[in-house]
Design a protein around this nucleic acid. Sequence first.
DNA 1: TCCCTAAATTGTATTTATTACAAACATGGT
DNA 2: ACCATGTTTGTAATAAATACAATTTAGGGA
Lengths: 143, 143
Amino acid sequence: MKIVPEIIQKLTEAGLKITPQRVAVMQTLMKLKSHPTAEELYAEVSKTIPGLSPTTIYNTLDTFVDRGLVKRVKTDLDRMRYDAITEHHHHLYCAISDRMEDYFDPELDRILSDYFTRKKINGFNVTDIRLQLMGDFENKAKQ
Amino acid sequence: MKIVPEIIQKLTEAGLKITPQRVAVMQTLMKLKSHPTAEELYAEVSKTIPGLSPTTIYNTLDTFVDRGLVKRVKTDLDRMRYDAITEHHHHLYCAISDRMEDYFDPELDRILSDYFTRKKINGFNVTDIRLQLMGDFENKAKQ
DNA sequence: TCCCTAAATTGTATTTATTACAAACATGGT
DNA sequence: ACCATGTTTGTAATAAATACAATTTAGGGA
Ligand SMILES: [Mn+2]
Ligand SMILES: [Mn+2]
Ligand SMILES: [Zn+2]
Ligand SMILES: [Zn+2]
């Protein structure tokens, strides 16, 4: 569970300088599974980096997205959210609580992949299939 | 193809007063298949209603969404988009051009519905399945 | 058809998330 | 250790959306 060296490696591979801010942002994003907003990340990362500027959060996240280290996700509300998981996956989402959780399902992916290999869509070339499963969490604690 | 009486009926059924602004917004939204933003709607509807206020666009769309006459859709960019089609359907989306088109596929819906009837997700009750098919349009004119 | 009232529209002022910018600072290669 | 370049910070600016109060309009009842 040594996460910091892992992060340092990621940053290095992406050609980015290692800064306390970047390490802390990535670490926090990997820890929080809630797909946090920039604001939520700012609150959390500030605990570690006292002088932190909100701008740095935005800059850092933009840079991470650019380099493919992080993905943006949207919900029905008007704020961008961020996801440290870059591998293909889907989301469970409850519009009422605005809660979002990851959903991995290789069997489903296989079915969808097969389906769209067979079924061609006229004038459109599918490169990725994202599912948003809307519904309610039988709330077993908010994460 | 008499669309206005149809719109008037929709508005009446929703318990809303018939105003030129509302009729024009709905008409424009039904005509444009592009899932326009409030701003794009404002530009288009202004042609018909000269004194139109942007606020009216926002108010009207909010009201329509409240009453279920219209749905909000999101893309990867930071603007809300609107959809006059309220029946269940999916979207084809190209992140590069930010172009979005509707995708109806009952066969696919059947497959997904069957799959999630069998496969229970622990702690989550699925009520709707939305697919966003990412990819590129072999652009046959931007609609 | 006219009145009246509730509902809708408008213009303006705010809010809120995000972005732009330039100065200060820190990283990492030499 | 030094320097150049990339990064962070604080502040100012944007842009979408919302709040609000004054004005206007729709449409049901007289
Ligand atoms: Mn915004
Ligand atoms: Mn916004
Ligand atoms: Zn995720
Ligand atoms: Zn649609």
